[in-house]
Design a protein around this nucleic acid. Structure first.
Length: 280
DNA sequence: GCTGCATGATGAA
DNA sequence: TCATCCTGCAGCA
């Protein structure tokens, strides 16, 4: 569950499982944290939320557990008595009133004092979270026009967590496709109306990924692909991982390239390179 | 069994 | 921009 929307969904699930309940057992794989586990017993889990791809579990008394799943971490919810059947390595287990949440495989976990969370090396560099910080289209536009962002190509820029926290590699391709923009486009070169279209795509695609559990494809396109019996990875996205397949809008085969050392998918006809004119 | 790749991020150059 | 770390897994012997 790697990108922001999926981390948000994980946070929701852990929140529902533990929030308002008192911890009776805490286990950490990491030696530094293991020493502190006992100090959390008896505290209530006050809330679980996320900021970009970071998940924050907050405890009564101002303690916060930071965890980052990177590419492979996963939270599992279960009864305290029942060990989940997974071959993965357990990193964190929180048990409150018989209910448990276990984090597997993640390697970036740390415990913080709420008041010092601003000093966290990763969190301190994050831009606003598109889902939790209620970013508006107007705010997104003005952020894209900020001096330190406006001169950078969107392909690299969208992955920069300092712009907006939570956008990852599949959202990048999807957002650019729905905005009809090429990855080399720079926000500073865009007319107001196009910039607004980009800002809306950023917000809407991210919101849809959250609502639809990571499905960013347009519902009717996804339904059509699904009817053809395509596997999930083929109908989940509008362009991502669809290289060679026809664009849903114009039929041109989707292309794959590499931008900022990550794969990026786009339609060369719907997402024209800045300065080029459409061919007929 | 081994290799390469992954929805991520860092640090050196 | 590149190598590197983290871990799991798909694909291929």
């Amino acid at each position: 569950m790697p990108e922001g929307p999926e981390i948000r969904r994980a946070a929701d699930r852990v929140h529902k499982q533990l929030a308002g309940r008192r911890l009776e057992h805490v286990w950490f794989y990491f030696p530094d944290l293991a020493k502190e586990a006992a100090s959390l017993i008896g505290r209530e889990v006050s809330a679980v939320d996320s900021w970009g791809k970071a998940l924050l579990t907050r405890f009564e008394g101002g303690r916060v557990l930071y965890s980052h799943n990177q590419l492979y971490g996963v939270w599992k919810l279960h009864d305290a008595e029942r060990e989940p059947d997974t071959g993965r390595s357990l990193r964190v287990r929180l048990v409150a009133e018989g209910r448990a949440a276990s984090l597997y495989s993640a390697s970036d976990v740390s415990l913080w004092e709420e008041s010092r969370l601003g000093e966290h090396p990763f969190l301190s560099r994050l831009g606003p979270d598109l889902l939790t910080h209620g970013v508006t289209v107007e705010q997104a536009i003005s952020r894209l026009q900020t001096a330190r962002f406006r001169r950078r190509g969107l392909g690299g820029l969208l992955l920069d967590q300092a712009l907006f926290a939570g956008i990852g590699n599949y959202l990048r391709s999807e957002i650019l496709f729905f905005a009809g923009l090429h990855y080399k486009t720079k926000p500073g070169d865009l007319e107001e109306v196009v910039l607004a279209r980009l800002a809306r795509a950023i917000l809407e695609v991210t919101r849809q990924a959250y609502d639809q559990a990571g499905v960013t494809n347009r519902p009717d396109w996804a339904a059509a692909d699904r009817r053809l019996g395509a596997p999930r990875r083929r109908w989940r996205f509008a362009v991502f991982e669809r290289d060679g397949l026809p664009c849903h809008v114009c039929g041109t085969p989707i292309e794959r390239t590499s931008v900022a050392s990550r794969r990026l998918y786009y339609c060369s006809r719907c997402q024209l390179q800045p300065g080029s004119t459409p061919s007929t």
